[in-house]
């Protein structure tokens, strides 16, 4: 499986461009000649200055958006509409506030035509794994930010996605909760090794979690450089940040990223 799989990457973006046309008819380029390869079971983090088009890459992989030029391939095949193998964790709360926790987690299997009993069973199972069994009947507004994020993870993982896309999923959480969620994510991911694209603006988060870090240029985004992260797994996120190699990685990548961040700030202040 592994040898076979290494021949076909899980996710491939080949010379992809994405342009938006505003209602006034002006064209805006978000992505330009973008190339990315994610091997099966690989955890890829994408960092770049704010507003550079990181989220656009994810939308292209889900099939919610189409590339203006170039090609997106999943498991060797083209993307036609929303792919059932894809799971997505959003930055903001995307839970359904009118459903309680278990109904939120059950949503995926029910949408996909599983029976109610089957959906309930696997929802219970996933709630146990994220440690929320006692909160089945709670509504999202009754939970803390970290707990809501765990529900989101359960809601996404219950569909057993082979491809997991995460759009700054933990950026709204406080620092301590975020570290806990990193551990949680790595634990869940290690069980089934989905191929992950994790978009973030937090470089340390990227290095701590990923096998490979992509640095993007200030918009229109294209890949500036790719850094393999050779830190041993399983990683303990709370401790890894004090290891010299981790710090070394962060410093190297930050040197690279800084120019882009500064450029993006300069542009923003010129535009203002």
């Amino acid at each position: 499986m592994k040898e076979n799989a290494s021949q076909t990457p899980a996710i491939e973006l080949i010379n992809v461009s994405r342009r938006f046309v505003s209602p006034t008819g002006k064209s805006l380029t978000a992505l330009r000649d973008f190339n990315m390869v994610v091997e099966p079971g690989e955890f890829v983090a994408v960092v770049g200055p704010t507003g550079c088009g990181k989220s656009t890459t994810l939308n292209l992989v889900t099939g919610l958006a189409r590339p203006s030029a170039g090609e997106v391939r999943l498991m060797g095949g083209p993307v036609n509409g929303i792919d059932p193998r894809v799971g997505f964790v959003f930055q903001t709360d995307a839970l359904f506030p009118w459903r309680n926790v278990i109904d939120n987690v059950m949503a995926g299997p029910l949408f996909r035509g599983k029976s109610h009993a089957e959906a309930t069973r696997s929802a219970r199972d996933w709630l146990a794994r994220v440690g929320l069994s006692r909160f089945e009947q709670h509504y999202p507004h009754q939970l803390s930010g970290g707990m809501r994020k765990r529900v989101s993870l359960a809601q996404t993982f219950i569909n057993e996605p082979e491809i997991l896309l995460m759009d700054e999923p933990f950026s709204a959480l406080d620092v301590q909760t975020r570290t806990v969620m990193h551990e949680e994510l790595l634990r869940l991911w290690a069980e089934r090794k989905a191929s992950v694209i994790f978009v973030t603006h937090d470089l340390e988060e990227a290095v701590a979690l990923a096998d490979k870090v992509y640095v993007l240029t200030a918009g229109p985004a294209t890949v500036k450089s790719v850094y393999p992260i050779n830190l041993p797994r399983p990683r303990v996120v709370a401790d890894i940040r004090y290891e010299p190699r981790f710090i070394e990685y962060c410093r190297t990548i930050w040197e690279d990223l800084r120019d882009e961040v500064e450029m993006s700030y300069r542009r923003a202040s010129q535009a203002a």
């Binding site: 889900t62 919610l64 929303i82 059932p84 894809v86 799971g87 997505f88 959003f90 903001t92 709360d93 995307a94 839970l95 359904f96 949503a107 995926g108 949408f111 996909r112 809601q155 996404t156 569909n159």
Partner: peptide, 12 residues
Amino acid sequence: NMIANARILGAS
């Protein structure tokens, strides 16, 4: 986001 979430989870 909620609509996108539902669609990715598999909703018609």
